[in-house]
């Protein structure tokens, strides 16, 4: 994501809790989010007169946070879209099947080491018609799964070869 040059987003690790991202808005208040290690996001806004102190905060689940992002996206998206399209032209989404003979059947996603080897990211796995978003490295493949991956054309070609390789 791009931010205008004059907005400085401050990143603060909160050990044992997560990561805090914040910036100062026009009236001097700090607005930010805390991404928790245990999942979920906390949105906070500081006091106008006491920027050190949180005035209000709200806990959001992952899907609530995604919804909020979408609500914001409405105004920003059209604006940014032209830039994005240009930047994204080199990036492709592809659907890669895990076939019965593949050596990754019954093995965890982490074993494929796709990101290290091809810079391709797995964004979801489709199993029995339902999508499983953001699978973890511990996710175990089954025959017939379809991997939704994002990467360069070359990277995706290499990833297809890796996922096809037999035991």
């Amino acid at each position: 994501m791009t931010t205008p040059r004059d907005l400085k987003v401050e990143r603060t690790p909160l050990p044992g809790i997560g990561l805090r991202l914040e910036f100062v808005v026009g009236d001097g208040r700090r607005v930010g989010v805390i991404h928790r290690q245990r999942g979920g996001v906390e949105l906070f806004i500081s006091h106008p007169n006491k920027p050190d102190l949180t005035a209000t905060s709200v806990d959001l689940t992952a899907s609530e946070a995604a919804t909020l992002t979408e609500l914001f996206g409405g105004s920003v998206f059209s604006h940014e879209l032209s830039h994005l399209r240009e930047a994204a032209s080199a990036v492709v989404v592809d659907w890669l099947p895990i076939e019965t003979g593949s050596r990754f059947v019954d093995r965890p996603l982490g074993d494929t080491e796709l990101r290290t080897r091809t810079s391709v990211s797995i964004v979801a796995v489709i199993r029995d018609g339902t999508a499983i978003p953001s699978p973890t490295p511990m996710f175990v493949f089954a025959a017939g799964d379809v991997v939704v991956a994002v990467g360069t054309v070359e990277g995706l070609a290499a990833a297809t070869e890796i996922l096809r390789s037999e035991a």
Partner: peptide, 10 residues
């Protein structure tokens, strides 16, 4: 207390 956003939290 919702103080994780405070300046002193880190």
């Amino acid at each position: 207390l919702g103080w994780l956003g405070n300046r002193e939290a880190p």
